[in-house]
């Protein structure tokens, strides 16, 4: 699993550099998110713009990170969903659970608003 990370406005931006997120690599993503959160990184923006296919285990890994961040009074928000990926969130109703932003700018604006609140 290839993931790049960078700091943006006190948030950590994770860009998944994988075309598919499925049962082959979702376990790795879940562990990666778990490690980040355990090490004190609690405000995450996950950029999925390179991901064109996601299965239920990929959703499960993101959901694990989402729940784990919330438990630590942090957040995990999503951006850059491709149409097929978006449709999978809608099929499983998870678009109602995650905060999903159409692009990185909108996600960062949300992040800044959160800091001011």
């Amino acid at each position: 699993m290839h993931i790049t990370t960078e700091q943006r406005h006190e948030k950590t931006l994770l860009s998944l550099q994988e075309e598919r997120l499925d049962a082959h690599n979702s376990g790795e993503l879940k562990e990666y998110l778990q490690r980040l959160l355990e090490n004190g990184t609690h405000e995450l923006i996950v950029d999925l713009s390179a991901v064109h296919f996601i299965d239920s285990s990929g959703l499960g890994a993101l959901l694990s990170g989402y729940k784990n961040a919330n438990l630590r009074q942090g957040s995990l928000i999503l951006t850059g969903l491709q149409p097929r990926v978006q449709s999978m969130f809608e099929l499983t109703r998870l678009h109602r659970v995650f905060d999903i932003y159409p692009d990185l700018e909108a996600a960062l604006n949300h992040a800044k608003a959160g800091e001011l609140a």
Binding site: D55, S57, M88, T92
Partner: peptide
């Protein structure tokens, strides 16, 4: 079908296939 309120990480595969 998965319970859409309790956010279980597993149990959506068969649901997706059925859909």
């Amino acid at each position: 079908s998965p319970d859409f309120e309790t956010l279980d990480e597993c149990g959506r595969g068969i649901f997706v296939i059925r859909q």
